[in-house]
Amino acid sequence: MGFKLLSKLLVYLTASIMAIASPLAFSVDSSGEYPTVSEIPVGEVRLYQIADGVWSHIATQSFDGAVYPSNGLIVRDGDELLLIDTAWGAKNTAALLAEIEKQIGLPVTRAVSTHFHDDRVGGVDVLRAAGVATYASPSTRRLAEVEGNEIPTHSLEGLSSSGDAVRFGPVELFYPGAAHSTDNLIVYVPSASVLYGGCAIYELSRTSAGNVADADLAEWPTSIERIQQHYPEAQFVIPGHGLPGGLDLLKHTTNVVKAHTNRSVVE
């Protein structure tokens, strides 16, 4: 069995187990497998329904001669939608809004960016022009300005110390501490036991640490421990890039980060 097929099978099995364990909360999309990078042309966006009122959005972007996937989250909030992270750029984010209108038909009224990198804030200006209120932590807003990236308009308070959590509509926002970046936030959907790890969490097929220019490698494993301790009931975990899975993604990420750190020390 090929690795790609095995990865998709694991996603399907995880979703099936969740649907059985929580039949009222989960209505997993039966329309197909989780979209992969090879299936999404740059400039297009796919939506994948995880649970009743919960979707991931998947886009792709060219970077350094390669094409990478990027995940975000959409959560229903009454007759409105909360968006977590842009679709990595203005063109993708405009396509995301169009796809949401086509498939869901509810307005996106608020959006949260989970850290300051372009795959999370690139497209904020498109959201703002569409009347979406954009939010991020003060740290993310400051770092985005320093980096020359787009800056969300509103500040999220109460997320300055490791372990801080605040309720934001249908989700809980959690600051686990520094990891992929010093400002990275985690998003949890309690009604569906869905954990969105953003770039602080890796997919299972990833074996290298990737972009760690703004990471705190020493603190990252401790931050992941905080996530595990705060959300032990999480059933569906979405990484910032690639295929979702279960809580095993947290341990896998820790292993990859520690291996990278150990290699760096040896070198």
Rank of each mutant, 00 (worst) to 15 (best):
T153N: 09
T153Q: 12
T153K: 11
Q235F: 08
S7I: 08
A59F: 04
S205N: 11
A178S: 11
G72L: 00
A218G: 13
F63Q: 12
V126R: 05
A133Q: 14
L97V: 05
G169L: 05
R263N: 15
L73Y: 00
S38A: 11
S139V: 13
I50E: 03
L73G: 02
D183I: 02
A165Y: 13
F116P: 01
T140L: 03
G32H: 14
V124D: 04
A165E: 13
S30G: 15
R120N: 00
S16D: 07
A87I: 00
T36S: 10
L185V: 10
Y231D: 01
A259L: 09
P244T: 06
Y202T: 15
A192L: 07
E225F: 11
V171K: 00
A144Y: 05
P41I: 11
P138K: 07
S193H: 12
G72D: 05
L250Q: 01
L195H: 05
L9V: 13
P190G: 10
I58Q: 06
H57K: 00
V112C: 05
H260V: 12
S160V: 11
I58N: 06
A95D: 10
L143H: 08
L97G: 01
N255R: 11
R226T: 07
V189H: 06
V75C: 01
M1P: 02
H241V: 00
G72H: 01
T254D: 15
H115T: 00
G169S: 05
T153V: 13
L73V: 04
V187Y: 03
T109S: 12
E233K: 12
V146M: 14
T60K: 08
I201N: 04
S155E: 13
R142S: 12
T182G: 11
G210P: 05
V256Y: 04
S38C: 06
G131V: 05
V266H: 12
L96R: 01
K258I: 11
I227W: 03
F63T: 08
I74S: 03
P170T: 08
V194C: 00
A179P: 04
E219A: 13
I84Y: 00
L97E: 04
W220V: 00
A133I: 11
L5D: 12
V187P: 02
W220R: 03
S208F: 09
V42R: 08
R141W: 03
T182P: 14
L83R: 01
G158Y: 08
V166S: 07
R128V: 11
T36R: 11
G245E: 01
N149F: 08
A259Y: 09
Q103C: 08
T140S: 07
F116V: 05
G158S: 09
